[in-house]
Design a binder for these strands. Structure first.
Lengths: 201, 201
DNA sequence: GTCTATAGGTGGATAGAC
DNA sequence: GTCTATCCACCTATAGAC
């Protein structure tokens, strides 16, 4: 493994442990075993390094989403997409935070990067596709799938972020949270199924 | 207005403009017109000052929630609580961020403060009460109102935070966001109403 | 490519005069 | 209570030797 790769690996580890606040070039250099300035031979600046990290986070996220495609029906793929979203958030909380819980201002130029925006857009399109195929197969009422997808994203993101930022501390333990996740996914399904009710009557 | 009050006022202004990152005792002193060390005569440290700010944010939030009580029916009060939540998030984005979008680690001891936790708990109880009175009046299926309230909070928080952190940029403008808010509240209502469906049959 | 040395800046907090 | 002066820790990034 060459130095550049080791920098990325250790950067991910460091960010995982310390978050954005404790993530410094000095600390990273120490972990990698080189001086801080040496890192600048491999990355233009801190932002470029963070952009690489975010890119990797989206790759991991994508791998979770794609698993949902093994579902046999549109509805099953839709449900599994929701489950995959929570699995990712729980398995990779820091990545989740970097991707969805960090203000663009804080990340500086990173958020403007078109590559990153495209990757984020791609994962959203995945969700829109799941909604759309449920509509096309007549399970959900026909219409614009984008607002539906946004609504689903809001719900999953809301619960995940309340948990990850500690806002549920004292109210839910991890088991309670998992139960709440089930309720969240059930309620999404219930809501979308009820959209088909008028068609059935 | 004595100096302590002016410090709090300016601190809120400064935090509103700069966020947690740009919020320093030096900058605050400059705004107030005193030196940074002078602030330490009125507050033990930065955390104590931030705790005062958070406390004020919860006061503002409470005033939004209470407006919802002017609704004539349990369902109307429930709906208006959701609307009040979004109104607060849009009117006071920085306060919202300080209260619900800042990691406990980042705030240091502040999040451990029992006073703050109690205030946060109180606003949640308000939402639980709204769910409970809908249950008691037979509008929603009877059961534990807490998971229902958590589910509603997740949905509203999710949409609000996606918006406030810029994750919807390029996908929704402000008008689109408001439409999405309506859809969110409609979908919550739809979901909770469908819980009463079995009782009607 | 990596080092040391350093520039140039941020920040929180304290000491002691007034 | 407020000031100035200061300490100390930390940061990003560059210069120039090797």
């Amino acid at each position: 493994m060459d130095t550049r790769e080791r920098i990325v690996t250790e950067a991910r580890e460091l960010f995982l442990r310390e978050g954005l606040e404790g993530f410094s070039m000095r600390a990273l250099g120490e972990r990698v075993g080189v001086s801080a300035p040496a890192i600048y031979r491999h990355f233009d600046d801190k932002d470029a390094l963070l952009a690489t990290l975010i890119d990797g986070s989206f790759s991991t996220f994508s791998s979770y989403l794609v698993r949902a495609l093994s579902g046999k029906t549109p509805l099953e793929r839709f449900r599994r997409t929701g489950e995959a979203y929570f699995s990712f958030a729980l398995d990779h909380p820091r990545d989740y935070r970097l991707m969805f819980l960090t203000d663009c201002q804080e990340l500086g130029f990173v958020c403007i990067s078109e590559e990153i925006k495209d990757r984020a857009g791609g994962t959203f399109v995945f969700l829109v596709d799941r909604a759309k195929e449920c509509m096309d197969s007549g399970l959900f009422q026909a219409g614009d799938p984008v607002p539906v997808a946004l609504n689903v994203w809001s719900q999953t993101h809301g619960l995940a972020s309340l948990w990850l930022l500690g806002n549920l501390e004292g109210r839910l333990d991890e088991a309670g949270f998992r139960a709440q996740v089930s309720l969240c996914l059930d309620s999404i399904e219930l809501c979308l199924r009820s959209r088909e009710a008028p068609l059935r009557q």
